[in-house]
Nucleic acid binder design. Structure first.
Lengths: 180, 180
DNA sequence: AGGCTCATGTAACCGGTTACATGATTAT
DNA sequence: ATAATCATGTAACCGGTTACATGAGCCT
């Protein structure tokens, strides 16, 4: 249940519509949290019912109306509560069907496993390339607290780069071991 | 939907009850796939309906009856199909509320963020310690294909160790940056 | 004419979590 | 006595995915 808190986090930077949120989530938070637009709209509804956010309908000419959401005082409190809450141990392991396949690779040939690992390396490279243009987007997002916020953005994107690099080295090690 | 395939994978090593599976899953696959016993029983039922596994009730003295499950031919086929199936891009990103908190840390003091990162480092260390005794369990599991299977077990546990180490270094870097 | 962007949703489904229920035996 | 182990499940819930629906305006 963290998408809700992600939404609160973005709204703490300023007013946004569900559409804006969907657009923002993907490029900035993609690595550590993916979000479908349908889910965002559902969460916004729930948050509104809990009075953690509120919205005003903004009429536009030549475009559909939009609901501009803003965070309430209660929402800010909840967001800060979540931020300071400890989530002990919940972020050490994760779900990866890829690693599960590696684990069960006795059941396939070494060639097939090597192929699988190579494909994984390609995926990593592609992902890394796609990551490049993100800083610009964050720049647009918060002009005021830009420099401060981008420090933490750097932290998470540093994590992503380190992770991808670690994966690559690991996969290469595996291939080398199999290749003998 | 990979728990089902994990079950098929373990059953390809030999017959097991739901209870055995639950016991096995946690220590071996914990890092890349966690499983609740309730979910395992549900999946077994589904797999049985799809004729991918079958079971025989084994009566025991002084203990409750158990259902010993084994994989069917159809199950083996499905397992191999899954194994060779490409899951492109699905394993690059992941969900982490911890990273989301880091991302939104403009909203808390640097001290608080450093504290959060330190707690994360402690979690990593604890997790690493708990990982140590696993090889023994795998040893018991498949006496025949032990050496082969343990190669792949090594791959995944190497991944886990590398990941934990990478996380540690990253967190220390963040703390250093904040500490100035 | 065709496709993209803006904008908000509904419906069906599903994998998974949490909590609870039961009951005998065995080890401390 | 008490707790742990063995063993299998049910029920309620929830976050999330996939697919689909709608419709105006703008760009090519």
């Amino acid at each position: 249940m963290s998408l809700a808190h992600g939404i609160l986090g973005f709204l703490s930077y300023g007013k946004m519509s569900g559409y804006d949120l969907a657009k923002t989530f993907t490029p900035t938070a993609q690595f550590f949290w993916s979000a479908q637009n349908s889910q965002i709209y559902l969460e916004l509804e729930k948050l509104e019912k809990k009075k953690l956010v509120k919205y005003r309908v903004v009429e536009q000419k030549g475009r559909p109306d939009k609901k501009m959401y803003s965070i309430t005082e209660k929402g800010k409190e909840e967001f800060l509560r979540w931020l300071s809450e400890s989530n002990s141990g919940s972020d050490t392991g994760f779900k990866s069907s890829f690693l599960m396949k590696v684990f069960f690779s006795v059941n396939q040939s070494k060639e097939e496993t090597k192929h699988m690992l190579s494909a994984f390396i390609s995926d990593l490279a592609r992902y890394l390339e796609e990551m490049e243009p993100y800083p610009a987007i964050l720049d647009q997002m918060n002009p005021d607290r830009k420099s401060e916020a981008s420090l933490y953005w750097e932290f998470t994107s540093d994590f992503a780069r380190s992770y991808l690099e670690m994966c690559k080295q690991w996969a290469e090690r595996c291939i080398a071991t199999l290749g003998a």
